[in-house]
Design a protein around this nucleic acid. Sequence first.
DNA 1: GTCGGTGCAAACCTTTTGCAATCTA
DNA 2: TAGATTGCAAAAGGTTTGCACCGAC
Lengths: 143, 143
Amino acid sequence: MRKSPSAARRTRQRDAIEKVIGSSDRPLALEEILAGASREVRELGIATVYRSIKLLTERGQVVSVEVPGVGVRYESSGKAHHHHFHCNGCEKTFDLHACPFTEPPSLPDGFSHETHAITIFGKCDTCGHRPKPQERRRTARRA
Amino acid sequence: MRKSPSAARRTRQRDAIEKVIGSSDRPLALEEILAGASREVRELGIATVYRSIKLLTERGQVVSVEVPGVGVRYESSGKAHHHHFHCNGCEKTFDLHACPFTEPPSLPDGFSHETHAITIFGKCDTCGHRPKPQERRRTARRA
DNA sequence: GTCGGTGCAAACCTTTTGCAATCTA
DNA sequence: TAGATTGCAAAAGGTTTGCACCGAC
């Protein structure tokens, strides 16, 4: 699986997974991808989703987005430089197209900047209106 | 373990763990804490480290710092608002005392800001000089 | 027909938990 | 001595991998 980019076949499951990620305007959790793709391909195995994501990531079509304290999300690559917003209510992650760094961040002497990741937490437009916060699920702890 | 803050005894292992975290000026990985505390308390069990960190976190003395794609680090709380720098060479995480947000980040309509996390990746002063990058260990993948 | 892909189950890794022994207060 | 804490090993969660069968080409 490492040298000649042999074959690479087109399958229903792979198509479905690619489509779900590609047609989303925000990063998706594994369960969201599994759920979405399962609508087209019943009995989709979770291992297949993992493998497909890995393949797509190696191909450079998908990038993983780690939301601190929440988990990993996946989104299609090729978007312009951007960051993420995570809703503490519905636990969905959204793209944010603003970046506070108009120039490289200032760092201590000798430190160099290569990349950076910014996640803003808060409530999305839908959850901000609701009086009662939805209950959190799973490992959603944060400092 | 949830209501009256009963006793809470002082033990060598707990002291050692607290000391390691408290005396560090940067967030530490679990292995770093284990290694450091083990110097004072031989045969320190990893479960004890996890339990102590959990306790300290619940007490508010420690906060966890998740470095995207790298893993969790722990640092003592009570520091002023700050962010983190992660060296892609030595895999150490450092505090950065600058924050690019002089005012709340602008968000889409209806979205509200509660907190944010910023991690800058690059090379620290030590690793920046080395011509050959050190080899990465474990699960240090990043998009 | 080939050989890549899939699904299932086992393997892995990291973190948590049960329990008997140990240690603090 | 009572009850918190520890260490070990088992359990739990999430992700990866081995393998036989299936399906794209």
